[in-house]
Design a protein around this nucleic acid. Sequence first.
DNA 1: AATCTGTCTCGACGTTCTTCGAATCAGAGA
DNA 2: TCTCTGATTCGAAGAACGTCGAGACAGATT
Lengths: 125, 125
Amino acid sequence: MSKQMPALTLADLNAGKPCCAPISEQRIPAETAAVLAPAFKALGDPVRLRLMSMIASAPAGEICVCDLTPAFDLSGPTISHHLKTLREAGLVDAERRGTWVYYRACPGIMRQLASLLHVGTPAGV
Amino acid sequence: MSKQMPALTLADLNAGKPCCAPISEQRIPAETAAVLAPAFKALGDPVRLRLMSMIASAPAGEICVCDLTPAFDLSGPTISHHLKTLREAGLVDAERRGTWVYYRACPGIMRQLASLLHVGTPAGV
DNA sequence: AATCTGTCTCGACGTTCTTCGAATCAGAGA
DNA sequence: TCTCTGATTCGAAGAACGTCGAGACAGATT
């Protein structure tokens, strides 16, 4: 059995297809790590982590770029760049409506990452 | 109330002190994002994600560097460098016993990251 | 003490990332 | 159609990153 598997994709992750067991239970295959690492990397910048949090916790389920940008001491292009990174990582989706662009979180991949990090409580407790 | 809080530390996270609500429920403060982002960043490289998975899933709860290195097509110094990154992110601990060095996962911070990413199922389901 | 093995540190190299200002694109309204 | 505003793309500068080989360090064995 060589590397014949069609290789997990971002779409799979967001479709909710379970990618693998928690890392505390089983080793991640190299191909899976290659697909998942970019998502963690996208969350690995303080600005993007805050953006992700603002988007994921938006009361309406979505939030306008015009509401995100003023929260940072950064230029518009920089925020736009970070949003693109989150988009390419499959963590958020964007939709343009008229002049404004709205972002919303992709819960599927967030759940995947959370379950990957899940740690069971010690057996004897 | 200005920024008077003593600023969350890695030690707090590994002590299990809850840092904050899931990002889908509430915005992360900037200071918190600054503390958490490095942990995600550490997991944002395929090699480190695999290392973390090998360490966290080690049957004995720990694993020797000599068992980690051969799993990669990378030099010893490179693996050592990645392990240092995981250590500095608070994700793993190392202990030397004789000639060998053993790594084990820090479950506290892993739980924090997992709960941060947690997404509740939609209300109506 | 000399040596051997496993691991880490150091310095260097090329690549990638973060950030910016300038320019561009997409709609809305005059 | 012209212009205005919101958002993105482009190109550039500096910092950070991943990788390596050479060398240093820590214990164990002789």
